[in-house]
Each structure stands twice: as structure tokens, then as C-alpha cells.
Design a protein around this nucleic acid. Structure first.
Lengths: 201, 201
DNA sequence: CAATTTAAGACAACCGGTCGTATTATAATT
DNA sequence: AATTATAATACGACCGGTTGTCTTAAATTG
């Protein structure tokens, strides 16, 4: 078996730590989550942590990418679904996010938004990771909106990129509001006003 | 001198702690800021803290209100300025915020947004404080938008309240983006798209 | 057996919070 | 008005626990 494809115990442990890290960093924040707690939860001794990660900061940066990947895959899946048009796919995607949010009683919200606020300007390493994560997200959303423009369901007098940016920003702000008010109102409004009204031709 | 108006040393110290707390909580977050650091900065011994505040959580809740007050006053001042119409006053207010943001090189952002993300769902006491702070902000913005509606500069087919909510949310999200990208682009876009376009009749 | 990976525990620094006790201010009593 | 009694505030040492990181030895591997 080739070395590069073999699933080692090391990879398995590292993934466990990342998974737990996503959950706990989202719920309790970066400084609010100790490495000990993460490692206890996955039964990996503290001394082992530094075999997998350089330090907490680099770990945070990896968690960010590990977190955003599934969202990109989920959105991409919707966009490549030929049954619905692009704007419908995007709406459907956000509906799923809202469902999940309600299911979790608005706990956590979005790791990207939370970490942008908490350490977005104090950790260079995490800042860079946040930038690329958000940019990848924006690029995918932009491609979807471009497709919708071509399909005539989205206005063409604004660039797909600017609309993608606006959507991401409003979504993040709405998530924060939903979190402290425990209501889906803000996120519903975000989708309705932008995807349903403002972005329409 | 009447008892209720006398400025005691206690009030002076408490204000100093609150001021320093606003700065440090905004820059380093709630869990990233130790009480010791705050107190060292204003030269007040550790043991004195608990004469002024019940604990760190209640202190955080007070910091939130202490932080938002000047913003409300600033916006209210613009709105009561009879030289400009309401929508102009709001735009002028946000322009000032952007100026300040650039002056600080996008460090910190908004304490409300940062704390909503970090402890908005883990501290009941701070969550409540965040709710009332945001609501007070929204109410004031709503009254300004209502005035603008009456003046015919803002569309009337949406409620002033829903527009105020949307503006706040987009603004918060844009602040996060501006923070990690060190650009005023997001906040400029927020004002331009909403105040300049979407809210217009 | 040599080389590399994993893990156990030590480490100093720091966390939020408590304690008893000075010090000061207010109230009560002579 | 002077003195005493009571309360409020100021303070720094100290608590148990936790932080992120490092050193070093054991286990595993080739």
C-alpha cells in the first residue's frame, strides 16, 4: 500500500481532534476552549497534541479549513443538481442551513463568523485561514449567482461577486442576531430580502 | 453637596475599569482578556474589582451597555440635527463610523458583534445585555428610518423596523469582513447597497 | 538495533475568585 | 459637638484549577 494513501492511526487521531475542535471552538470560542478539554473528549493524551499540530494557533487555522469544507461540498452539490436552477439551488442550500440552525437551537452559529470576531485581528495565522475560507465560500457563491444571471433569474446590473459578498456579510450578521435572540427571523429575513427581492431582476 | 450627585472615588474607579474593559474586550475578546490585565492598566488592585462588580460575567454585561451608549448618543445627535434629512443623518453617522474604523486600521470592530459571536450563547447574563443593547440600537435606527419614510426619501412598502434590522445585521457582518481583510470595502458596500439603493423608494 | 513516533508528566504562567484585614466614611450616642 | 459604634470600601496575598508548551522516556517501527 502506498504511503501517501494509507490511513494511519495518526491520521485517525488527527481527524478526531479536528472534529472535536470544530464543535468546541464553535460553541465556546477559541480562548474559551482549552486543549485539554478537546483532547479529553477524544481520549488522546495531552502530550500527543504536539505530534499532530505545531501549536494551538496553527490548530485553529486547520480547524477553520476543516470546518468550511463540508459547506462548500454541500453548496456545490446543490449547484450541480440539474433539477433546480441556480437561484433555487442557493435558496435550497440556505434553507438547509436554517433547518440545521433551528435543530441546534441556534447554538454555535458559524465558526467563521465567531472566530472573525474573536481572533480575526489578533492571530495572523488564523486571520489568513479565515480569509481563504471566506474567499473560497464567496467564489463558489459567486459562480452560482453568475449562473443565475445567465438563467435570467438574477439582476445583471450588479456583479455576481458583489452580491455574493453582500449575501455572506448579511448572513453572518443575521446569524449573530439569531444566536442571541434564539429566533430564525434574522436569517429568514436575510434570504428573503436578498435572494427573494434585492437580487432579482 | 447632595449625596446623589457627588462624584466618589468609587465611581471614578469604576468608570476607569469600564473604559479599559471596553478597549480590551473589543481587542482581545472576553476569554482572551484577564481581569488582572484590565486592572493593571488602570492601577487598581485585584481585590478591589469585586467591590465594583459581582463577577466577570456581570462586568461584561455592564461593559456592553457602557460601550453602546456613546453610539446611541452620536446617532441621536445626527438625527436631531435639523440641517440634514433623516436618511442623510443616518448616512453621515455611518460615514463617521467608517472613518473611525479606518483610523484604527480595522482593529477591534464592534464589541457587540464580537461578543455575540464569542459568548452570545454561553453567558445568559451577557446575552441579555447584548439583546437590550442591540434592541436600543435598532429602535433608534428604526425611528430615523420612519422619519425618512415620512420625508419621502425611503420606501414605504417595507417597515422601518425590518429595514433597521437588516441594516444592523449587514453592518455587523460587513464589520467582520472588514476586520479580516483590512479594507473598508465591505462596510462601504453595506451603506451603499442598503442606504443608497435598496431602501430607496 | 537504530530511528522515529507517541505519550506521560513537569513546567511556569495565568485564570477567576476569596479571604482577612486595613482604612475610610457614615451613623448613633452621649 | 465630640466621641463612639457601625458600615462600607480598599487592598494584596492567596486559593485551587487550568492554560499552552516543553522535556524526556517509552513504545513502535523499519
Amino acid at each position: 500500500m502506498r504511503k501517501s494513501t494509507k490511513t494511519t492511526k495518526k491520521d485517525f487521531n488527527k481527524e478526531n481532534i479536528l472534529n472535536q475542535g470544530v464543535m468546541m471552538l464553535m460553541q465556546q470560542g477559541y480562548h474559551g476552549t482549552g486543549l485539554q478539554k478537546i483532547l479529553d473528549a477524544v481520549n488522546i493524551p495531552k502530550g500527543s497534541f504536539y505530534n499532530y499540530f505545531e501549536d494551538k494557533e496553527h490548530f485553529g487555522a486547520e480547524v477553520i479549513q476543516y470546518y468550511i469544507d463540508p459547506f462548500l461540498k454541500q453548496l456545490a452539490a446543490h449547484l450541480s443538481n440539474s433539477d433546480t436552477d441556480a437561484i433555487g439551488a442557493i435558496q435550497c442550500y440556505f434553507d438547509e442551513l436554517i433547518e440545521e440552525l433551528v435543530r441546534n437551537n441556534f447554538k454555535g452559529g458559524c465558526l467563521l463568523g465567531n472566530l472573525m470576531g474573536e481572533i480575526g485581528d489578533t492571530s495572523d495565522i488564523c486571520q489568513e485561514s479565515l480569509q481563504t475560507a471566506v474567499n473560497r465560500y464567496r467564489d463558489l457563491l459567486q459562480s452560482g449567482l453568475k449562473k443565475a444571471q445567465d438563467q435570467g433569474t438574477v439582476r445583471k446590473d450588479k456583479t455576481a461577486r458583489s452580491m455574493a459578498d453582500l449575501l455572506i456579510n448579511t448572513w453572518q450578521g443575521a446569524l449573530l442576531r439569531a444566536k442571541i435572540e434564539k429566533t430564525s427571523g434574522p436569517v429568514l429575513q436575510c434570504c428573503q430580502e436578498l435572494l427573494g427581492n434585492y437580487f432579482r431582476p
